[in-house]
Design a binder for these strands. Sequence first.
DNA 1: ATAGGGTTAG
Length: 785
Amino acid sequence: MLEHVRRLTALTPTINLSILETNLQRCQWVNQFKQILSQMILTGFITDTYAASRLINFSTHSNFIPFYYSLKIFNHLHNPNTFIWNTVMRSHLEHHNSPHQAINFYKLFLLQNTPPDHYTYPILLRSCAARVSEPEGQQIHDHVVKSGFDSDVYVRNTLINLYAVCGNMVSARKVFKESLVLDMVSWNTLLAGYVNVGDVGEAEFVYDRMPVRNTIASNSMIVLFGRKGCVVKARRLFDLIEGKDMVSWSALISCYEQNGMCEEALVLFVNMNVCGVMVDEVVMVTAISACTSLSVVLMGRSVHGLAAKVGIQDYVSLQNALIHLYSSCGEILDAQKLFNGGVLLDLVSWNSMISGYLMCGLIEDAKTLFDSMVEKDVVSWSAMISGYAQHGCFTEAVTLFQEMQLLGIRPDETALVSVISACTHMAALDLGKWIHAYISKNKFQVNVILGTTLLDMYMKCGCVENALEVFYAMEEKGVSTWNALILGLAMNGLVEKSLNMFEKMKNTTTLPNEITFMGVLGACRHMGLVDEGRRYFSSMTQEHKIEPNVKHYGCVVDLLGRAGLLKEAEELIESMPMAPDVATWGALLGACRKHLNNEMGERLGRKLIQLQPDHDGFHVLLSNIYASKGNWSNVLEIRGNMAHHGVVKIPGCSVIEANGTVHEFLAGDKTHSQIKDIELMLNVVAAKLKIEGYAPITNEVSLDIDEEEKETALFSHSEKLAVAFGLITIPPPAPIRIIKNLRICNDCHTVVKLISKAFDREIVIRDRHRFHHFKHGSCSCLDFW
DNA sequence: ATAGGGTTAG
């Protein structure tokens, strides 16, 4: 080592201040720096405090010298002066993102009996501000007062900033008021504090009383107006600014963007370029974000091109925004190209790419990338879990959540929401309850989204009591919360309570939306409240100015149809501004059958089968109409057509009893004993039905099932029907598979309707899409939202 | 030396 040093110093035997300055100016590599350092140690020049401070200053400000070098030099100094201490502390704060270390160095500094100067405290106060740590800041404030630097205007301004950043405007204002000297920075800092806490009144008060209003102050006000949704005020202020700078434009553009006025944001961005104002990566990120919201990939490409032209395309934030843009617009290859070619990628880039893949449905690619990550954060896990949940991979979502638990990573709200929604879809009540307990145990804040998701889960799993508990415990409730409550109660048959809750909602400031009215109209339908249904329907359009959607119409058509108002129902269908969906027509056809209006039923049924021959529902509805009149030859004709069109489906669903017990019915991982109960039930029904003299139309149906389908599910719907009519015996239990995208078919409906009639028992069946509520041999459905 | 603008998971 010593030999090495000697060899190096032999090249430049002497050193003094001017040689040091020259050498440092030329220094571009770590080895050159090492050479200078060795020389200084060997000549003893390092003990010259000023020379040492030049060396430290250089090393902390260069980007090629590792920070531990600076610290090593620092440790070798015998008597570092205040300047050197300040340099090291500032370096921790500014270049190494460790304000905590800056404060630790201050503690060492105090032990040295070296007096701090007026540069020392601003550095420390900024460190506290960076950590948003008011108690630490308060301590430094005490030191400031003791050391007498509290009259320094720089120190006072950084104190105002500290309290402002921590949101303590009382203290910020106190420091401001007690200042003998106030400059523009003091005013702007106080103003920025009120902007930070979102206090428009106080901010305007300060802004109006400023002796001089410069561009920085006006820009702050634009930001505030933008955050508060006062777009017009922001624009007016922008137009009044004499010397608009890049930040003024940037602030207004992001004001538009944040308030959903993305076209205006882009127009302003183009204008900014036309006016020859310089653009940087910050304003470009905002512009790209606006392009993403509007899905205008071409505009995004031109911003990308501009960034390349200006030479700032390598900024990580810009690349991340572009990855997000391209994957949102389905241009996943462009996103991938950016990601693979990115030089300076960060965690956000990886997370954006993962969510980009997920957005495009490339689940495997997302998982591969996720697995290859060396360092994952909560966002990575949440993105992956919620991606799984959104694509119906509920088992995978839950498995990944459990993996995350095993690694001891605390999930965030997104992960919890996603996994609860997976539980909702799978009717995995036990796991859902476990997660609820986990949330309570770990003191997670149950906010609107999380609370609503839990409430929704309990409602959709039939646990009304638990759902209500969650509802009442929630401090803040959003429209989605009320919707989950109102719809959930209606779904579970508590219709009166559902309507009561809607009346309660009217007393709050939360306005109902189209989903709320789905619940309300659905409740009226369950109860057969024709007048109320009509009234709510008109209040939705008249008072609340909500355009009814297909489902709203369908609901009212069903309500009218059930009440026997077939003509009115048909007229409503004809008045619809959009094409009626299958359920709407189904409601009217079902009503025709119930009210024995064969003329209308046959007319509509024949028309619909012609329009949509591949839909099993219409065939069944028409055959039911014939069956109710005993026209068996017509029934067989329609059933034959069904087989011809290949529309016989395999069903699957879960049955939820009023007490919340969930039975997997026809599919799902359940024990044989539960199936046996159902078998037993069906056989009893079969016996009853036979006595009542139903015709065995199921002969035909069971023949329609092909061998392949038989292997897929243990209970095909035709077998069930056959069982119900006592025509065949149940085959020995085979392993039951979970069938995805379960859908209750019409024959399954028929069976359960019969059960509900025979046992005079209400049954609620839930599949992936809706609740089926069976009562007295008829069924009404409420769709999920 | 202290004051103003942006992005990612749902």
